[in-house]
């Protein structure tokens, strides 16, 4: 078994493979502009209860003697990453477990009462209130049908409750959220959806240079794309799917080649 010590995760660009059950020891670092150096623990890690540490003889004496070093347990396999005081495990997963604040693409599965039931890829359906849209009133509100797609933000996520969605910001503006009309929905891995959302994503820049299209990327691994013609939409879909296993340079070449074929 590998124990990843503080030294190994001390630098920002670290990438150590960890498996469930591994123990990770991390000490918070002073960050400029932040008052207290507190660790922020991301997905894939849990804090080991103090009682368990004591029983194992890792923690001796009083709790303060261990300083601020946290003993964490890995629960999913992946690469351990650290940025400042944030630690998390980066794994490749297909099943989405949306978190509060995530932007997701949902499919309307029912319209009971004042709510819409929305499938967002989690273990149960989310609810979306029919007034949670920009400028919606009781008289004037969007009428969604079963099978419609919505781009929404997860407003409430609690393990004992159904997740709640909203298509409107606190400011009252939709800012792109709401019904997605036409287009094509497809699913990708969660890792790829993160890549697409990151700045300077090669495939999106390459596609943007070739043709105009609309795209919406949900953190639940769903992507909606729409271009002027169906074959152009499929080009976008195929290019994104292929980009998962290609380098930035190869992606650019592939997109150019695909665009050239579609024009001829």
């Amino acid at each position: 078994m590998v124990h990843v010590e503080a030294a190994a995760v001390g630098d920002d660009a670290c990438s150590v493979f960890v498996a469930p059950g591994d123990t990770v020891e991390v000490a918070p670092v002073e960050v400029k502009g932040e008052k207290d150096a507190a660790l922020r623990i991301g997905p894939g890690l849990t804090v080991i209860p103090e009682t368990q540490l004591r029983a194992a003889g890792v923690l001796d004496g009083d709790a303060s003697s261990s300083g601020n070093t946290a003993m964490l347990q890995v629960v999913v396999p992946g690469d351990l990453r650290r940025k400042g005081n944030m630690v998390w495990v980066d794994g490749v997963h297909k099943r989405a477990l949306p978190a509060e604040g995530d932007y997701v693409i949902g499919i309307i599965t029912g319209t009971p009462g004042e709510n819409y039931n929305v499938d967002i890829g989690g273990s149960c359906n989310a609810t979306l209130h029919n007034l949670a849209f920009e400028g919606a009133t009781k008289r004037n509100r969007p009428r969604l049908k079963v099978g419609d797609l919505v781009y929404a933000r997860v407003q409430l996520m609690h393990k004992y409750m159904e997740p709640e969605l909203t298509c409107v910001h606190a400011s009252g503006k939709a800012q792109g959220m709401g019904l997605l009309e036409g287009g094509f929905l497809f699913e990708i891995s969660l890792g790829l959806s993160r890549t697409l959302l990151s700045r300077g994503c090669a495939v999106l820049h390459a596609l943007g240079a070739e043709l105009p299209f609309e795209i919406t990327i949900g953190r639940n691994g769903r992507v909606w794309a729409k271009a002027a013609r169906a074959c152009e939409t499929m080009l976008v879909v195929n290019a994104i799917r292929a980009s998962e296993r290609l380098s930035a340079k190869h992606t650019r070449e592939l997109v150019k080649e695909m665009a050239r074929k579609i024009r001829s």
Partner: peptide, 11 residues
Amino acid sequence: LMDAGISLTAM
């Protein structure tokens, strides 16, 4: 289970 990303307390 690991492939599915389901949390495990240990392997």
